[in-house]
């Protein structure tokens, strides 16, 4: 069974966002980039677990980005995976990303495609379902557990106010979140071995953009905090009622 894991590069979670060029772009100076946490902690780790337990035979990692994303995909490869693919393109949005990944994946034929619940940079959470549509595959979003038996997957996924278990035959696209895998730390051996694993660079065919970002804005500073004495919770309740109007 062949698994494809979609890896996106995002600013480290503690990054302070600074805008430039008259607020038309985000300043990347001094920003540390990491593997999108959902891709690393859940999608990739679960793929590795499936390989370790003998269910998966091969894991490929794919990322859409220019050469500057290579350190991140290499880091992902160090965690585990047999081969990495970088689609050499600057992507505007999930629509383009999904098209590029689908174009490559259609040619290989994966049994399972795992992606993260969302990338923490643009917070869309739409790439996986788009990919499923482009490849004419089934899709299960917000997975919290994945098990594979023969040619079928049993997937726990979040629903409003609970969880459900779905069954579906492979091939399948799943977006992963907390619960899908156990946390782990990369070992040095893996990091060394990753250097010899291949990183393919693919030039995609072009696609017409369907969205563009015109500008950015930082949130307004909070108007200032009102402190309430810990002995006067009646006052807090009054403020929440008359001023904030939330209760």
């Amino acid at each position: 069974m062949k698994i494809l894991v979609c890896i996106s590069q995002v600013p480290d979670t503690s990054t302070k966002i600074v805008l430039k060029n008259n607020n038309t772009s985000v300043n990347s100076d001094g920003v540390t980039y990491v593997i999108n946490p959902y891709d690393e902690w859940y999608a990739l780790i679960r793929a590795i677990e499936l390989k370790e337990s003998g269910i998966a035979t091969e894991i490929h990692l794919i990322t859409v980005g220019k050469a500057d994303v290579e350190p991140v995909i290499r880091k992902a490869l160090a965690l585990g995976g047999d081969e990495a693919i970088r689609i050499d393109a600057e992507s505007n949005d999930p629509y383009e990303t999904a098209h590029y990944i689908a174009e490559y994946a259609a040619g290989v034929g994966y049994d399972l495609i795992l992606c993260g619940k969302e990338s923490i940079d643009y917070n869309n959470g739409t790439t996986g379902a788009m990919l499923a549509e482009l490849l004419d595959l089934d899709y299960i979003g917000f997975a919290t557990g994945i098990s594979i038996e023969a040619n079928a997957a049993a997937v726990n996924r979040e629903i409003e106010g609970g969880e459900e278990t779905d069954a579906c035959n492979l091939p399948l696209v799943i977006s992963c979140q907390k619960g899908v895998a156990e946390a782990r730390i990369p070992n040095m051996r893996g990091i060394m071995a990753a250097r010899t694993r291949p990183l393919k660079v693919i030039t995609p065919s072009g696609i017409t953009a369907v969205t563009e970002i015109l500008s950015y804005e930082l949130p307004p500073a909070k108007a200032g905090i009102k402190l309430v004495s810990p002995d006067d919770m009646d006052e807090l309740v009054q403020l929440l009622h008359t001023e904030a109007k939330v209760i």
């Binding site: 923490i120 917070n123 970002i213 015109l214 500008s215 950015y216 804005e217």
Partner: peptide, 10 residues
């Protein structure tokens, strides 16, 4: 975008 650290006009 950026988990609420900024907004984008798309």
């Amino acid at each position: 975008v950026f988990s609420g650290k900024a907004f984008a006009y798309v």
